[in-house]
Design a protein around this nucleic acid. Sequence first.
DNA 1: CATGAATGAGGGTTCATTCAT
DNA 2: CATGAATGAACCCTCATTCAT
Lengths: 237, 237, 237, 237
Amino acid sequence: MPAAPNPNDHRPRVAAERRERMRKRLIESALIVFAEKGVGASVIPEVVAAAEVSQGSFYNYFRTNEDLLTAVSEELSNEMLQSIENVVATIADPGLRVATAIRCYLQLARNCRLVARFLASAGMRVGGEHSMVYDVLPPDLEEGAKLGQFDAAALTVAVDVIKGTVLVAMYRMAHGRIAKDYPEQMVQAMLRSLGMSTADAIELTAAPLPRLTAPAESLLARVQARSVAKAAKADDN
Amino acid sequence: MPAAPNPNDHRPRVAAERRERMRKRLIESALIVFAEKGVGASVIPEVVAAAEVSQGSFYNYFRTNEDLLTAVSEELSNEMLQSIENVVATIADPGLRVATAIRCYLQLARNCRLVARFLASAGMRVGGEHSMVYDVLPPDLEEGAKLGQFDAAALTVAVDVIKGTVLVAMYRMAHGRIAKDYPEQMVQAMLRSLGMSTADAIELTAAPLPRLTAPAESLLARVQARSVAKAAKADDN
Amino acid sequence: MPAAPNPNDHRPRVAAERRERMRKRLIESALIVFAEKGVGASVIPEVVAAAEVSQGSFYNYFRTNEDLLTAVSEELSNEMLQSIENVVATIADPGLRVATAIRCYLQLARNCRLVARFLASAGMRVGGEHSMVYDVLPPDLEEGAKLGQFDAAALTVAVDVIKGTVLVAMYRMAHGRIAKDYPEQMVQAMLRSLGMSTADAIELTAAPLPRLTAPAESLLARVQARSVAKAAKADDN
Amino acid sequence: MPAAPNPNDHRPRVAAERRERMRKRLIESALIVFAEKGVGASVIPEVVAAAEVSQGSFYNYFRTNEDLLTAVSEELSNEMLQSIENVVATIADPGLRVATAIRCYLQLARNCRLVARFLASAGMRVGGEHSMVYDVLPPDLEEGAKLGQFDAAALTVAVDVIKGTVLVAMYRMAHGRIAKDYPEQMVQAMLRSLGMSTADAIELTAAPLPRLTAPAESLLARVQARSVAKAAKADDN
DNA sequence: CATGAATGAGGGTTCATTCAT
DNA sequence: CATGAATGAACCCTCATTCAT
């Protein structure tokens, strides 16, 4: 029988914290394994090994592979959105907001190949309907259309074009090398597809991007740390 | 030692034909199953069931899942390319050629949801480097750039933008409904991303598309026939 | 993180014991099946059936057929060696030690035809380099040579001769009937090959052999019990 | 319907010859594959590939793996026996005959590692009852015993000792290196096990062995030629 | 007889999931 | 809640054998 909730008893709280930490650890390991093996692969054995948890414990946190993938996607999306929002929050101009946000998104993936790999592999499977691109972009796009920055007729397919172009960019960054200004070129192409002139598109992508920072205990930060640690370990051998 | 080749002996020929038919049958079944389960799934058991052959026979034709996927992709690419080429062969204007070719591609997928599903699922995994978009488009794009139709600076990322945009279109056509002029809108967006004006883009996508025909014994035709047959069968139950 | 190790918690211990029992059960079944089908045969399905476990469980203990064979061989070797050592431990004379040890070895196989079958089938494949004959005999042989019991020149091939002769003896005991004093005759031949006179050889093999006992829960004992049980069962039908 | 046998018609004869050649070719390939993969392995696919025959044709010559193994063993035994007989035919002394025959046997295996491998792998499985050692040795051994060369009491197990010792020698020659006089040492040990003195044993193994020749179209010769050809081919790469 | 595609049985292996401890 | 052994379904693949041509 569960103990009666006692407000002075700190056990429930620490238990909940432990649980949350474990969950984070599993998600972190899963991101790495999904990135390496593809989001369609069977990852549970590798994830539990990487997270150093027992098989049985895994099922106290996630019920299926799919569940895990969803959790990873949401966690990653939220963190990326937050990072981007930190940068674009003060930008008033809708065109510049859109351009900068996408550049940030590409930059985050470029900073961590594992993330690029994960997102490239995930493709349309995550964020199909409710995601960054489909939720946060439309308002800015409409505002930009009102200001004459974007062609109103372009908006009906705008998010699809952006989604697809970003996805290919993920793939390029995940495998093989890209030119230094590849992200800007891609963003300019997206802006042109929205009806913007090349000159304007170049202008909106000209400013240097601020450094994107993730909180120390964030998924992004931890994954990057682990991939660095792993590379160092591989060098030892 | 083998018997001397006898030109009157038709056995080798009929054997080769039989072999080719079996191969076609497996590829056809595989396209359907890949479309249903995704190109990353294990399809061999379902494919052999769909093709009504034994497991053992399968391995006389393909060694792995991957092998099979490659074969399906190539066969499908070739047929689609051929269909498109039949239409655009007589178009001299590079811009119109590009626009029409992409419209045809989208149309072929629209005509057969299984094809759309397969291509959406395949994503970047097939034809990553050597495919329609990376092989046949560049010459036309460059020619168009010389004529001033496209912005030369856009070409470096043009194929990526097209690839991604087409891929999202596949996804849309595979799942859910699309507007009647969705393909044209998408092509217009691609053309704009290449530096073309909205007005020109609309003009290049205005002509009605000729009916795309596939030979009766082609993969496209057979798959469509089978999916119709299957739907009818499902209606019976 | 795992719970702090609690010395009062007996769960780890019982778990380890259960695991060990399962392992023993599989090895025991494997010995029987290897003896019946030969050490080169595919035994996993039959072993899991004989041990009444699932296929999946098997792979929690052994990864391959070869793995299993190695485990069986080691277990059997260790037990036989232990049984023999119990008998010869107090024998000071090297010639008598060697003669008695080999007689014991042959006797153990004679006591259990399954063991003879297994060892005959295993032939050179197990213990090729590191086995009873190559590890424990040489010291005694050298000591015997120093005492003039064996011809020093014979030692270079002595272990090979013994290995081969014992192997054929295994085969004879595994299939068909042998004379009552066959083991002694074979040991005498081995001793002669080492340079000993027939009279001395007869003397060293004259003493009656003590009863060889194996612990109740040993592989040898259990296999014998099971083969008896199986024979009884077969008689019922 | 078969044509009536016409004594002037040479077709039956050439057909039989072709058949015999094909059979020889399969046996030759089988010897090689058995030597490489072990006599317990499934060899038919590799054998038909090596012999460049169709799968179906194989079954016109042999019905099972076991069949093939038996055929190879017999063919090889016959040829080896013939080679040895050519050498020992003129030796009157039974002890020298035995010693020389065994030395020849070992020498044949030493000349061709494939043969050693095959015989080592075959172990007791071929020639278990009716083979060289069990058929041709006993008369000589008994004659030697009558002349006082061998100890009559040793004869009951003599063939077993020889069989086993020769088998281990096969194994040693098949894998790893052996001393130059290893065969002679082994034969001396066998002779001692038969009751002969070391000095006599040395004398009987002292004479140089004549060159053992096999007819050009014999299995031994062809296998050796093929293994040389294969090594040369491997060197090319 | 030669051929080689078709077959199906059999063996090897992985993995998601459950459950007793 | 943590653990990790047990399970069985599913998949992968090879091979002996048959049979139409």
